[in-house]
């Protein structure tokens, strides 16, 4: 954790806008501990009633896939069309499927 002149460590903020919705990445804040990170996130990302629940996580604790792996990781899914309902033919007249 870098503390040279300190702007305090970086945290990523996830906000749930209402119950039932997923938490979505809203941005980041600087804070020295979790309580401060939560409060800073509240003051910065929910000023207009955007939230009902907040998650914060130290940015350095997030693992991210590498862009150069994009093809290897995600292209194989492109030709698995049988995973989508539109792949299948249903006889005309059959409903509710």
């Amino acid at each position: 954790m870098s503390t040279k002149d300190n702007q305090l460590p970086l945290w990523e903020v996830f906000i749930q806008s209402k119950s039932g919705n997923p938490h979505k990445h809203a941005g980041s804040v600087h804070a020295s501990d979790k309580n401060m990170a939560l409060q800073n996130a509240r003051d910065i990302y929910t000023r207009r009633g955007e939230g009902r629940s907040i998650w914060v996580v130290l940015s350095e604790n997030i693992a991210a896939s590498a862009p150069e792996d994009e093809a290897e990781l995600f292209d194989p899914a492109d030709d698995k069309v049988y995973r989508h309902p539109t792949f299948y033919r249903v006889p005309e007249g059959v409903k509710n499927m």
């Binding site: 702007q7 305090l8 600087h30 804070a31 401060m36 409060q39 800073n40 003051d43 910065i44």
Partner: peptide, 8 residues
């Protein structure tokens, strides 16, 4: 003392 606290 830090931008975040200014807003707080």
């Amino acid at each position: 003392p830090i931008l975040e606290e200014d807003l707080a």
